[in-house]
Simulated assay, not measured.
Amino acid sequence: MKQLKTGQFFGATNSHLEWKGLTITDTEYTHEKVDWHYHEKPYFTFIIQGKVLEGNRKEIYECTAGSLLFHNWDDAHYNKKPPGFTRGFHIEIAQHWLEQFDLSLDSLQGSIAVKNPDVKLLFYKLFYESKIHDNASHLATDTLLVDVLENIKGQNKTVYSARPDWIKPLQEILHEDTLQSLSLSQLSGLLGIHPVHISRYFPKYFGCSLGNYIRKLKVKKSLALLPDKYKSLTDIALDSGFSDQSHFIRCFKENMGITPLAFRKRMHF
Rank of each mutant, 00 (worst) to 15 (best):
F85L: 10
Q95C: 10
I132W: 04
R87A: 05
E92I: 12
L98A: 03
I132L: 14
R87Y: 03
G110K: 00
S107L: 07
H90R: 04
F101L: 02
S130I: 04
E129W: 14
L122E: 07
V114T: 02
Y124C: 11
R87T: 15
L103S: 06
A94W: 09
Q95S: 06
P117Y: 14
A113L: 15
A94R: 06
L105F: 00
S111H: 09
R87S: 15
Q95H: 05
G84C: 08
F123I: 04
A94K: 05
L98R: 03
L103P: 00
A113I: 09
R87L: 15
I91M: 06
Y124W: 12
A113M: 11
N116G: 10
L108S: 09
F85I: 04
L98K: 01
F89Y: 07
N116Y: 05
P117R: 04
I112Q: 01
T86H: 04
H90L: 07
W97F: 00
Q100Y: 09
H96D: 15
L98D: 06
H90E: 10
I112W: 14
N116K: 12
K115N: 08
K125L: 05
I132R: 10
E129Q: 15
H96T: 09
T86G: 08
K131L: 10
Q109K: 09
L108I: 08
Y128K: 13
L108H: 06
F123W: 09
D106A: 09
E92W: 13
I93V: 07
Q100T: 14
G110Y: 05
K125Q: 12
L103Y: 11
T86N: 07
F89Q: 08
P117D: 05
E129S: 14
F123S: 06
L105T: 02
K115F: 11
I93M: 12
D102H: 11
R87G: 05
E92V: 06
I112D: 00
L126G: 15
A94Q: 14
F85A: 11
I93T: 00
F85W: 13
G84A: 01
E129Y: 14
S107R: 03
P117T: 01
S104I: 01
G88C: 11
K125V: 15
